[in-house]
Design a protein around this nucleic acid. Structure first.
Lengths: 234, 234
DNA sequence: CAATTAAAGTGTTATGATAACACTTTAATT
DNA sequence: AATTAAAGTGTTATCATAACACTTTAATTG
């Protein structure tokens, strides 16, 4: 089998490798995605998922972090690879294999560097994403699916909220992400019962009704529980 | 952003693209994986996951089907992409990005063509997989993880069994796949309660005790239920 | 400043799923 | 005919979840 590899690697083909990253955020009401508007052909004026070519001596994961940092001004972002999209005709100008990622950011921290991206990047509600350039709609759908699976079984929803948040905010996020409603009392019991949230003294401010308690996600505790075979669900 | 793409695509890099496919089977006692023994350097005599380079005008999914057909003699195999493995130094001889897949086959149907593969391919129990060439152990682990996730939430276990099977065989498969035991009575109630199995008249043969009823997976019924928002679990 | 508002936060019960385990049945072998 | 070994069933206790009513609290309003 390796002989084959050798034989063919003498006629090494030319593929372009790119990364594309679906960036999710939550503005308190809607789950949003960062999309850019293309300025040139092909697909001029279409929406697209941010991405870039991978350098010759670059790990695609690093390339994605690079793009993400230029795009949002952030580091240490939650990031997971989705899969590769590599159809023969996905890019009109040549063979480009893209490795797709998705990432979750706290939208309040979003602070793009003044770069080529800044002007064109806009937060778009996930319901409003329709057509996109290339096969980017498929990539987006695939990212949303993966996020919905993950969010049920891993406590990653917090990546989309501020460090400190109320249970109502959390419930809201889950409802919007999963397109489903939860009973308030039951939702609280379930979440608090997991013992993953640290209740703070601080209360919500500037609301015209009883202010809610603020919480913070306890990541050490989660790491601990994981070792003891705990499994987050819903 | 597209300007960047253009700028860089003028200095289009050379990447090799390969596919690797983790092929699972179940021999009645153990979950196994098809591994090949490398005949040449690097990693001579190491075990490896079967794969090949992707041709210039070939879809990676088709490339995988091609490899799989050469390797097993089968078509229409259950096949899912895992993700891309693309670290800079994963291949000592040059930059190769691999798109990893996993597939499930009915081991009784395994019937390799007399090709370069045949001699070297062996079924190895998943517990016995240790070192492998390149980053193939990582690919294998990742495939096993994915399979374990999927098998709990999709009725794909049947892809590993003969068309007709007993409930004990099914339970055995699940226990080996998930490394866990199930109560017989409860397992049966759960599975039969889903109404996804067609009981056959045929009974098990040549056993020195009460013969078990044979069943067949009802894929039309599953397609139907899926539309009605049914979700398989465990 | 008492009444009102709107959401925060809690308690209670009915229902259903699951786990645990004992039991009966059946064909083949001895 | 007795024995064996696994097939296959039934019963109950326990726990998780869903549904819903209720109490509490700070800010706003007239």
């Amino acid at each position: 089998m390796y002989e084959k590899e050798r034989a063919k690697s003498s006629t090494h083909f030319t593929f372009g490798i790119s990364v594309d990253c679906v960036v999710f955020g939550f503005d308190g009401s809607d789950v949003k995605v960062l999309v850019i508007k293309r300025g040139t052909e092909p697909f001029k004026d279409f929406s697209a998922i941010p991405g870039d070519l991978v350098h010759e001596q670059e790990d695609p994961l690093d390339a994605t972090k690079r793009v993400l940092n230029e795009l949002t001004g952030l580091k240490n972002i939650y990031l997971e690879q989705l899969k590769a999209f590599a159809g023969v005709n996905r890019h009109p100008l040549g063979r480009v294999v893209t490795i797709a990622y998705y990432s979750l950011i706290k939208i309040d921290d979003y602070n793009p560097k003044p770069s080529s991206w800044a002007t064109d990047a806009t937060w778009t509600s996930i319901q409003d994403i329709k057509e996109m350039a290339f096969d980017h709609f498929e990539i987006f759908s695939s990212a949303l699916n993966r996020l919905q699976e993950r969010v049920r079984r891993r406590p990653i929803g917090f990546e989309l909220l501020p460090e400190e948040f109320t249970l109502a905010q959390l419930q809201d996020l889950y409802e919007k992400l999963l397109n489903q409603t939860f009973d308030k009392a039951n939702f609280r019991k379930k979440i608090l019962g997991m013992d993953l949230l640290i209740p703070l003294e601080k209360m919500q401010k500037a609301v015209r009704h009883r202010p809610a308690r603020m919480y913070r996600f306890d990541s050490e505790r989660y790491a601990d529980l994981t070792k003891r075979n705990f499994h987050f669900e819903l």
